[in-house]
């Protein structure tokens, strides 16, 4: 069974919600990324979303793009990130989802990328610049490899399209909580819960919500309606602010932050 499916099945049985932190691979360096992932797991994270740095990420906000730029300046190729994932797989069974631009997937070749990702130990993808209209080939090939292709759904997505996304997405559905790009925001739009309930009526697949979550209260509120909560920019920002500290401290500080957010699920 795919690790993502197994995790949601297990969470459902236990009546729990998933917590999915995002971090950029290689920020501030790959060994630290590895330690942070393990620390997140210890603190109760369910799935890790791993950002593969890309030069022109239109779906991401300034915080995540800046982290991508930092990694690319140090010229860490995708191959090295996949090797890092292989190494990490020997130390943890936590589900790993990569956030990767279609530019990268296309350049590798769809089958080659899926093959290498599978071999490295990734469990699924979010390809944010590949909307459902273009995603059929990736979903089919991913399914054949036992990998998940997780699609985004936005507040502006019309009902018919939501149904299509719910059908094609595998693993879970990634609901974008605020219009626009990723980034920590002060408050969530009021209609989020309403939209989530509506989406839930269309599908049995887990629905996770992301983009803009940064505090335990927000996690608590959303956990009532979503199956999982994704937090990205707030974590990446914290890493950026503390990048000059010794590795153990970066790991401790980000771990504590995630630990605090997870209290929102209890």
């Amino acid at each position: 069974m795919n690790r993502i499916d197994a995790k949601f099945a297990q969470a459902q049985e236990a009546g729990q919600k998933a917590f999915i932190p995002f971090i950029t691979a290689g920020d501030p360096d790959l060994p630290t990324t590895g330690e942070i992932i393990l620390e997140f797991e210890r603190r109760g994270a369910s799935i890790i979303e791993l950002g593969i740095p890309y030069s022109d990420p239109i779906a991401d906000g300034p915080v995540i793009q800046a982290s991508y730029t930092r990694v690319l300046e140090r010229k860490i190729p995708v191959k090295e990130i996949l090797e890092f994932v292989s190494g990490l797989r020997e130390r943890t069974e936590i589900p790993l989802v990569s956030m990767v631009s279609y530019s990268i997937v296309h350049k590798f070749g769809l089958e080659q990328y899926l093959g290498q990702a599978k071999e490295a130990g990734l469990d699924g993808f979010i390809v944010p610049d590949l909307p459902v209209d273009e995603a059929a080939a990736l979903s089919t090939s991913a399914e054949a490899q036992g990998l998940k292709n997780i699609l985004l759904c936005a507040p502006s997505t019309p009902p018919q399209r939501r149904r299509l996304i719910a059908q094609v997405s595998t693993g879970f559905i990634y609901y974008v909580s605020v219009m626009g790009i990723t980034g920590a925001r002060d408050k969530l739009p009021e209609d989020v819960q309403e939209h989530l309930l509506e989406l839930k009526s269309l599908t049995d697949k887990p629905i996770c919500i992301g983009f803009g979550v940064s505090r335990a209260e927000q996690v608590r509120m959303l956990a009532r309606v979503a199956d999982g909560i994704i937090v990205g920019s707030a974590i990446v920002n914290l890493i950026a602010q503390n990048a000059r500290r010794p590795r153990e401290e970066v790991v401790r500080i980000t771990g504590e932050f995630v630990g605090d957010l997870i209290t929102g699920l209890k």
Binding site: P128, D129, P131, L152, C153, A154, I165, M179
Partner: peptide, 9 residues
Amino acid sequence: RYVPETLMF
């Protein structure tokens, strides 16, 4: 169209 879902509409 290779854009995020947020732009599709």
